[in-house]
Nucleic acid binder design. Sequence first.
RNA 1: GUCGGAGUGGUGGAAUGGUAGACACGACGGACUUAAAAUCCGUUGCCCGUUUCGGGCGUGAGGGUUCAAGUCCCUCCUCCGAUACCA
Length: 1251
Amino acid sequence: MEYKPSDFETKWREKWLKDKIYSAGLIDSNTKKFYSLYSFPYPSGDGLHVGHVEGMVANDIVARYYRMNGFTTIMPMGWDGFGLPAENFAIKTGVHPHIKTEESVANFIEQINKVGIGVDWDKEVGTHRADYYKWTQWIFLQLYKKGLAYKKLAPVNWCPKDQTVLANEQVIDGKCERCDTLVEQKEMSQWFFKITDFADRLDKDLERVDWPEGTKQQQRNWIGKSEGTKVKFKVEGEFTSTLPGEIEIFTTRLDTIFGCTFLVVSPENQVIEKYKDVIRNISEVREYVKAAKNKTDLERQMQKEKTGVELMGVKAINPFNQDRLPIFVADYVLNTYGTGAIMAVPAHDERDNEFAVKYNLPVFPVIAKEFGEPKPNEQFVDGVSLVLFNKQNGEYGFIKHKNGFVGLVSGGISDNEDYYQTAKRELMEETGLWDYESIHKLGEVVYAHYYHSGKKINRFAKTQGMLVVLNSAQKKELSLEEHEVGFELVWLSPKEIIESYNAEGTKHWQEILLRGVRLTKNLGLDTKTKIENFPENLFTGKGVLVNSFKKPFRFDYVKSVIVIKEPLIADSDLERLQDKYKISYNRFGYWQGVDFLKTDNSLFIVGYDLKEKDELFIEFNSLNIKWENVFEYVSSAEIYKFSNSTTKEPVNDINLTKSENELLEFIFSKAEIDYSQKSSDTATSEMQDWLLKNELGEKTILYKLRDWLVSRQRYWGAPIPIVYDPEGNIHPVKEEDLPLLLPEDVDFKPTGESPIKASKSFKEIAESKYGKGWYFESDTMDTFVDSSWYFLRYIENKNESEIFSLPKFLPSVTNSESNKSLYQVLETLVGKFAEQKVDYAVFGSVAVSLLNRSPHKELGDIDFFISKDSIDTAKKILETIGCNFESESENLYVTLKNDQRGQILAFKKGDLEVELIEVEWDKKIWEQRVLVPFNSSIAYIAPLNSLINHYKRRENTQLINFLEAQNTQANLWLPSDLYIIGTEHTVLHLLYSRFFTKFFFDQGYINFDEPFTKMRHMGLILGPDGRKMSKRWGNVINPTDEVNTFGADTLRMYEMFMGPFEEAKPWNNRAENGVFRFLKKVWELKDRVKTEMINLEVAKKQEVALHKLIKKVSSDIENLSFNTSVAKFMETVNYLGEFEFVKKDLFEILLKLLAPFAPFITEELWSILGNSYSIHQSSWPEAREELLKDETVKIAVQINGKVRGTIEVSTEALEWEVMAMAKEEKNIAKYLDGGIKKIIYVKGKILNIVV
RNA sequence: GUCGGAGUGGUGGAAUGGUAGACACGACGGACUUAAAAUCCGUUGCCCGUUUCGGGCGUGAGGGUUCAAGUCCCUCCUCCGAUACCA
């Protein structure tokens, strides 16, 4: 008989359905279960896709494998029935979406059965059916009750041509997908779910699930947790004092705050209107704000350049250094994130830099690059490294050391030298070069951590790069000493040297050298060096802080101090001058200023000149005089002037009194605040502390995640169960009125409002139930709401009175508590239990036992039970408090004497112990379940099932019953064990499902808070042409066609064989045919089956092959590595095909192993061989270890790592035996003449001989 | 730009740091056939030496660690997916 799938596939399909072999009944806490979950499809008119088949077959194989391994298994199926396509179809044809959807469902069921997916159809759900969406609405009401569903104005995508609201997916490049009209934003009042309350848990709990790392990462990105700081900037008028209120900004880079040169607020920020009276250009500002608000998303995206307007007349004060900063409004700052205001640090942020460059604002670097990692006991050194450029010939000068290493001329700073002085000195000392034209700083200093191998110490080096431009290479003679040291000056092209500075300790030189070359090129001196990858001008990374200090007077920028003896100036005049020339709008950039300070007999005028080119005039004695010339006008003035901004030495000598000297010293005094030289991280946390102490800011955690907009102005969705009174007030629909049915008397044509709104019947029902003038909400819910809980409904899909059976005692947390840590939640609950006079309660997967409700009441001894997984922790704690304990079997029992209770409470308060608890609690609560004393009561927690077993031993029936009651079917079946879902659902569906699960958990409905323990994505199946399957390309493969040509088994196995399950792969009909040929071989093997084999050696060989197959297939299924399983099947069947006969019991093992992959052919052959129905209810074979080990093995013999031959040796052979055999091999022996250096022998693997 | 994932024969893809290319498709040669299809047998990474056999090269590129690297580390390139003024 030939292999013809159509001969028997229908027969078995019908029998399986009739016998319900895939259905599971109720389970209890002793059941081993497996819940195989496939993401339920949208029942589209196009029918089942090969991608669905791929996922379902994978789910099915794993489910069948676990079933055969004795697990009670379900694989339910359902329909994500609400959605746009059915509604669009209705708009076009007038066919009601319900009819169309159910039609498609019937088609899907037919197709799924054809593929042989073992679905438990008794558990089918459809989100569009009233018995399902009744509970979707019920969930809405529960969320509403807890304050987690609310209504607010929000923009929607509006197509002005179609007069309709569009979903985000319907907007393509800012245009309507149907008519290409530009989409507008329109404000409408809409419903939201407060998922943001759960942001932290949604982020943190990702640690606990077994999901693809990439998907977890995408969820994290979506939630967008970012830790930063809010900082308050006081606001001042231009020439007036502090204005009320402040601008609060959010930053993740507090360490850069000394580089802040302006503030930016979003157009929507209220501070604009708040300071409207002092903003001089308010009308210009308002115009900008209006224009920004009118921009569509598309326009904002298209706009490349940043725009903004300064708020003239107001300044913000940097709390760290009192800099007066200009404030801008610009639409690159979003009002919806953070505080809607930022501190701009153009030196260390790309966007701020772009803005600053455009508006010519100062850029002030405060973070220096840091190379290497901090090391212990570092020696700090401060110095310069020189890039020498010879103008004459365009060559660069380096120092070549004795050992051949070519380095930059470098040296440390001595005494009070500045960098220029050091550079000159080192140049002379090390090279003798003297004929320099100019010396330039190469940007900011750089820091490097490295090990100095010569001095054998760790170093932390601060290095200023300097460029020395030389007129010529003329040298003075160096002292003899220097020659002896072995330096040699060499002139090179820098290119290859730059590449060699790649290691620790020289990497910062690479940076300096590159900066040097760039500067010479920018100065037009070097025209021949060709280097492309110069370091970024803008450094956005973390590093070491520089220039981050506040001094009363900034020595670095003081140009000169004028001392006027016996000044003739009135105090009021002085104040006026102080105000007028108030210094330091900024200490950098174009703002300049003058400080006026008075001692008993002198006036000090401290002049800052920051950009030397600008002239500074001041008003003095009614004269507007040039700063430089003040002393010419004031006879008693003496000027204390400095040669350059880094030297303290005065140009002229003047005699100062003691108090004047003190004042001068004060001007040059050390910083009050100085974060320089600290790492970004250290500085950030120290700055946060400082802000907190001074009440100027605080640490803040922000999330990108926004609340979930669930309103849809559509017909084909679950109606939102809200009713409005005639005044428009919101009321929840009464639970007994659920389901709130979708009305039938509607026109599907889009109007911009939900089609339901015009329904007469809908209105009538509202009025009859709630009163005249009352009306229902006409929006329906986002279909993601429907699909966020379907996996829970499967279990009890026919339960009419409850969403699913709920535990008898429902501890629940209120909204305000829902985002607390579990510790806090439990603590609250304990209080609640106490009020309700319950001794025991179950919360989550742990039981809480209250041992003492009233702290002052005398109690007897208390029994503690600690589960085995937390014994070590518990012992540690108990030892600390001096408590007696004994180990009994696996668990630990503790009797706590009454007088030790106080110790426990004290132990909670003690330093060390508190730390212990908190660490254990936060990190590992679900695993550790440590002993937990609560504030006024003592409670302990333990896993539910261990607790039940514990009380069974103690025969406490009442408690056992109570605890067992928590074992609802939902709690027993979920979380699901394997969830297979497409990559398109990496964010929203999975996130929303997790949100709902956490909400249910908080309400006590369920005892788990993550729904999908293990989740995997099936890879995309591409068309035969390598493109994504699409009607447009005509490359769609229809699974039913494939079943008709090749049979379901071939389709299933081929899809598994195509490639790694989780990767994208193209369809190939010919390869599919190869799988058919394989199944045919299996089919034909049945004619060679023999119960008893005459040739025992052959029997043994076959047995070994089959047991290896068992091992491979079992582990492959567990790892979802189906393609390699199929390959192994093929290999084994090809091998069996070599023999005349196949042993019957071994062939039956093959059938069992193959059954999950190819259920039809295996059932047929199983039956032909006379076995009892059904193979799918038989048990999985076990691999016998002794058959898996080979006696001999072929190992490779390598010479110097290259394979030169193979020898067959016993698996247990010793090195000398193997070596002896290897030496006999001709091809190996010829390499051994030169003598053997080393032998590496890995038993059963390889022999490598080094010669 | 940022974050993920991936680069291996003509193709889909195998390979706990231990003989790269399992298994399959295709191609080539042969058998059967009047012929074709189907089926079966053999060959098949590239290059060199006539062959058994031996040698060289080879997992996106370049470095490194190791007795030994597709696999581990560093730098870079390409493709796919996600996201984007998120401070």
